[in-house]
Nucleic acid binder design. Structure first.
Lengths: 156, 156
DNA sequence: CGTGAAAGCAAGTAGCT
DNA sequence: AGCTACTTGCTTTCACG
C-alpha cells in the first residue's frame, strides 16, 4: 500500500493539469480537458489519483492583505531560553493571528517567524506586547520586508 | 473611482464566503449559499465585488513538495556588493526554480530568500553553483527550516 | 442587496474498449 | 488509461423587489 509522503512520479499530462490548477484552482476540469486533449472523465480520474497520492495538499483562495490594510511584513528570529520547551512557545505563537509562519531552524535562533502587520507601529506592538510576552522568549531580531519580489511554489 | 489596494470594508457574510474559499477554493457557491442562508446569486454578486476590490488575489492548488522529493526548506540572507543593482540580482534569482520567495529587507542583508530543495546536498549545490554564481553576491547566510509549525494567511 | 427561474455547463459515475 | 453517455448539480444571468 502506498503511503502519503512517499515520492510520486507524474507525467506530462499530470503536470499540465497541476499547472492549470496551481495558477487558478477554479479552472473547470473540462477546460483543462480541452487544452490537454483528453476527456473530462480522464482528467477526473487523474485528479483522484493525484489527491490520493498526497501530492495535492488542498486549494485556497489567496487574499491580498494590503487591501485589508496590512502593509508590513517582517521576519523575526526568536531566541528562546534553554529551559523553554519550543512546542510550548509555538502554541502561544499560534494564538497570535499576525504570525503567519513559524519554523524551527538551524542557526542562532530557536524559532523563525513571518508576521504580517498593518504598519510599523502595529509591528512594534505585536513584538513588544505579544511575542516578548511569551515566557521563554529572551530576545528577537527583526527584518522588515520592504518588497516581495518572488512568490511561488515548487516548479512542476 | 475605487483604486485597487485601497482599503476595503467587508461584512460578516463576506467573511464567511472568504473563509470557505480560503480553506477550499473549490467550495461550490451554492454550498456557501446554504451555509450562509442567502441565495447563490447573492453570493455570486458579492464575490464579483470582492474580486473587483482587489481583495481576492487569486486561487491556487497547493502542492505538497515532500511528495515530489523536496524535503529541505531554507532561508538565505544574501549580502550584495554595494555596486550591484538589486533588481539585476533578482532577475537572476527568478531563473532559479528552487527560489520560492525573495524579499528586499531591512537589516544586514540586501535580499532574503526562501528556497526549497530535495535534500542538503541539493541545497549545497544551489547555494554554490547558482546563488553564489550571481555576480554581485558577496556572501550568504543559511538557516534550514527543520520543521514548519505554522502556515496560514491573514485572519479574516 | 437581495430573490427566483432558466439556460447552459461542469462534475462525477458507470460500463465499455 | 482512455472514451462516451448519462445524471446530477453548479454557475451565471436576468428581470424584478
Amino acid at each position: 500500500m502506498k503511503l502519503k509522503n512517499e515520492q510520486v512520479v507524474i507525467d506530462g499530462i499530470d503536470k499540465k493539469i497541476l499547472r492549470s490548477l496551481i495558477s487558478d484552482a477554479r479552472t473547470p476540469i473540462l477546460e483543462i480537458a480541452r487544452n490537454v486533449g483528453i476527456s473530462g472523465a480522464a482528467i477526473h480520474q487523474r485528479l483522484r489519483k493525484l489527491e490520493k497520492s498526497g501530492l495535492i495538499a488542498g486549494s485556497k483562495f489567496v487574499i491580498n492583505p494590503k487591501v485589508l490594510g496590512y502593509h508590513t511584513m517582517a521576519f523575526i528570529g526568536v531566541f528562546l531560553d534553554k529551559a523553554m520547551s519550543n512546542p510550548k512557545a509555538v502554541k502561544q505563537l499560534e494564538a497570535i493571528p499576525e504570525v503567519i509562519e513559524c519554523h524551527y531552524t538551524t542557526g542562532n535562533w530557536s524559532i523563525f517567524l513571518k508576521i504580517l502587520c498593518r504598519d510599523n507601529s502595529h509591528l512594534m506592538e505585536v513584538l513588544n506586547k505579544e511575542i516578548q510576552a511569551i515566557s521563554g522568549v529572551s530576545r528577537t531580531e527583526t527584518f522588515i520586508s520592504l518588497e516581495q519580489q518572488i512568490e511561488r511554489q515548487i516548479k512542476i
